[in-house]
Design a protein around this nucleic acid. Structure first.
Lengths: 196, 196
DNA sequence: GACAAAAACGAACGGTCGTGCTTTTTTTGG
DNA sequence: CCAAAAAAAGCACGACCGTTCGTTTTTGTC
């Protein structure tokens, strides 16, 4: 029996869970709240995932898929080198305040939440974040090859620094509610791009 | 009756609570765990704070006092201008991995945890963070006056960017466990300091 | 050392959490 | 349309949560 109903609700649950977790974190996710939100019974929802931990991992994976769709893939459609790097950055800004992420970037929230815990959820997040920094570094490397950036620039250092710009934006925007947050981020990005 | 015993235990509780909260967050703090750790009864500990929310706020204030002692005050003892700014940064690095903060900087963890919640705890953290960015900006401003930095540099932008460097370090160090985290942070700091 | 105030305790409360079990309802393939 | 399978529901559990209250122990002052 190849069923589709199950996959549908599971998808709906994950969609809602990603949004919710962006506000309250992966640990703050509660099966009861999630079930009420979707007008499901606790046990009915629970049945789709065999544990809360499994749910959390699937939430991370689901968010990662959305992230690739919203940020990475469109950026890869841009010309390699500086335009692509620029697109990655600006699309990340859009992502961090997109409607499916009402509490800001889920990964930013999860990073500080999970960095002191052990287990498969933390491991998964760590891998995802390494991949994301890898995407930035690779794009930057292509920019070196294209002659957009200096030959002696360090792609991993650039990825690290650029993510710092993103984290500073998140902090200024979401905690401090600084109206200048985006302008600050754009300025910081501009300063970060090395001259060729 | 001028008693001192109460203040002593309250201090001990806050000391332990700050360390614990750096790992599990302010919301992850639990009165039961805290009581067990200090060999107190739940109700005995609870009596010192009238609610968990009050405890969380006092934890923030206690951490802020420690932060001033460990980072701000020593830096203010440095010559104004660039040396002082440099000292603020390096002492922050030390702070973020000091033994009383086994889970990394409490404020970094609390920032993403509380940025979507309302209430006095969030308000307090927001104020503390604004003050901290203010300390950085003021120190930088003094550096401009000393002729260490360009006259047209923006102190608030510098504070924003420097905090981004700190957040990137925290992410690389604690979640990614990147051995190069500190070197990356120092490099980023060097790039950030504008030439006079 | 008496006495009041402060601190600590022990037990209980209502509530929510994740999870397991059993039963009912819905979906699906032949 | 029917039987098998999947999904959803209902209910209960043990654990832990913050909080309250009455009692006991410790502390500080005269």
């Amino acid at each position: 029996m190849v069923t589709t109903k199950g996959a549908d609700t599971r998808h709906a649950v994950l969609e809602r869970a990603v949004a919710l977790a962006s506000k309250v974190g992966l640990g703050g996710l509660t099966i009861g709240t999630l079930a009420d939100d979707l007008q499901l019974s606790k046990s009915g929802l629970f049945g789709h995932f065999r544990s809360k931990e499994a749910l959390q991992i699937q939430v991370l994976n689901h968010a990662a898929e959305r992230f690739v769709e919203a940020v990475v893939r469109p950026a890869l459609a841009q010309p390699r080198g500086e335009p692509r790097v620029r697109s990655l950055f600006h699309r990340w800004l859009d992502w961090a305040r997109s409607s499916p992420m009402p509490g800001g970037c889920l990964f930013v929230a999860a990073a500080t939440e999970l960095d002191d815990k052990d287990g498969p959820v933390r491991d998964r997040l760590q891998t995802l974040q390494r991949e994301w920094l890898g995407v930035i570094a690779t794009s930057f490397q292509k920019g070196i090859e294209e002659g957009h950036f200096p030959e002696d620039a360090d792609p991993d250092q650039f990825a690290h620094d650029l993510y710092g710009v993103m984290l500073a934006y998140h902090h200024a925007h979401r905690l401090l509610r600084d109206p200048k947050a985006e302008a600050r981020a754009r300025h910081a990005f501009q300063q970060l791009l090395p001259d060729r």
